[in-house]
């Protein structure tokens, strides 16, 4: 899980062009949107593409996105669950 979290942080930095950030600057439990890291709807689209492109997982119901992309931890848990299934 730790490896997946670190990998995800690196992929988020790359996908969102956060080039002046290091993986450890993104808190695993911190909210990615709103008052947390401060991502917005365009970033959400980038994260959906990231999940599909790198892990082959499609978010079927957009309503689930809010829970899945709440934090790096929730995203990692979602990926882990769907990859093993």
């Amino acid at each position: 899980m730790e490896n997946l979290i670190l990998k995800l942080k690196k992929q988020i930095i790359d996908a969102l062009n956060l080039e002046d950030m290091e993986p450890d600057e993104i808190e695993t439990d911190e909210a990615l949107f709103d008052d947390g890291l401060g991502l917005d709807s365009i970033d959400a689209l980038e994260l959906i593409v990231l999940t599909e492109k790198n892990y082959g997982i499609k978010i079927e119901d957009p309503k689930d996105g809010k829970k899945i992309f709440y934090s790096v931890k929730t995203l990692a848990e979602f990926i882990k669950k769907h990859k093993t299934n």
Partner: peptide, 13 residues
């Protein structure tokens, strides 16, 4: 050093 002038999150796009 962009961080002196803006947060990385502001510079992402």
């Amino acid at each position: 050093d962009c961080k002196e002038y803006m947060k990385p999150i502001q510079a992402r796009r």
